[in-house]
Design a protein around this nucleic acid. Structure first.
Lengths: 199, 199
DNA sequence: TGCACACTGTGCAATCTTGCACGGAGTGCA
DNA sequence: TGCACTCCGTGCAAGATTGCACAGTGTGCA
């Protein structure tokens, strides 16, 4: 935990400014109606700089901060005795708790998405990177090979799905139901082997 | 089953020509090194026409024919008595059998993908549409609401994942192992509730 | 056969996305 | 303090996507 340093801080400021401008403009006009040029202008940086921080427009909406490896960190904190599925589940709960700590902004983001179904595929694409990181973290914990063995990739894949479905339901219920409980339902269904509709 | 008609046939010809040109050029140079302009030229149509058939370059590689609703059709053919998971599993086996009928081309496609990891997210994005269609087919069969109930979306999501992981393993083993068996392994793991690594 | 309509192929313009190169500011070390 | 190195912000150009409008051909119907 060393001090970030001025350069790093400035970088994060720029990213935060871009993310904030994106959210504000997207809530107002819809993400697809907002051009990268407008976002950059609103954040006070050049057009090209936007793409130094985000590879696609959608990323500026969904990754306000560099949140890579969040899951891996939380997973490492779990009791080593725990089997993979419960451990991963607990780690994801921590991730969701982080989201819940900024719930207003996240509900706004989900609203922007819900208003523009065309964005969905792009978001799934974004999630692929997280899924890969999750698979690697699980592989590391279980001592399996992420590229050869079935388990890490499959578990990461289905948990990503559960997460996606959960966020979707959470937003549709206006953020009323605890994220925690909704996610628990999805994982319970998975752990039970998807026997049939539990409604 | 009405005759397609000349217009429809011409359209499919154009699509097939574009898909064939894409596969050939991609195998030769890698997909990202091939421009849409080159593909269109090789297929004898204009640049713009390419995007009348495919919304992204990757689609020309992975959807040589309009294969929408394939899963839904196969699912409808299953015994109505079958529970959702076995029924969906059987339907997907039929889909895989279709792929296997053109295995050389499909192994080539998977090779192109394996050679360019950057393509992966894009492909997942493409798969989103199929997943949605799958969820709707499952919802229709179970009488659930695809937007409200958890089950259809979750089952479709995890089966899509299983499919993706399966194709990946199939290709990595040079297409030697029967697609059928690899897919069976993945679904078995799911149906068992992902209890732990089975290697 | 001849007409009205629908749909494919095409051209053009606005954006998005990415690779390359440069200049200036932050960082570590003498 | 001064030097060498790294990295962020920027400009430019090529290629990927998408919306809009038009022309020509296939289709259905009189």
């Amino acid at each position: 935990m060393t001090t970030p340093g001025l350069r790093e801080r400035k970088k994060q400021d720029t990213r935060a400014a871009l993310a904030a401008a994106t959210l504000r403009l997207a809530v107002e006009h819809g993400l697809s109606a907002v051009t990268v040029e407008q976002i950059a202008a609103a954040a006070g940086v050049s057009y090209r700089t936007f793409f130094n921080h985000f590879s696609v427009k959608e990323e500026a909406l969904l990754r306000p901060a560099g949140t890579e490896r969040t899951f891996a960190v939380h997973l490492a904190e779990q009791d080593p005795q725990l089997p993979p599925l419960p451990a991963a589940r607990a780690a994801l709960r921590s991730v969701l708790a982080d989201l819940d700590a900024d719930r207003e902004a996240w509900l706004q983001r989900l609203s922007v998405i819900a208003a523009e179904p065309d964005l969905l595929p792009r978001l799934v694409e974004l999630g692929t990177a997280d899924e890969r990181a999750m698979a690697e973290a699980i592989a590391a914990r279980t001592g399996l090979d992420v590229d050869t063995d079935l388990y890490p990739g499959l578990l990461a894949a289905v948990l990503s799905c559960a997460l996606r479905v959960t966020l979707n339901r959470w937003h549709r219920r206006g953020g009323q139901e605890p994220l925690d409980r909704l996610f628990g339902e999805a994982v319970d269904a998975l752990a039970a082997g998807l026997p049939g509709p539990a409604a």
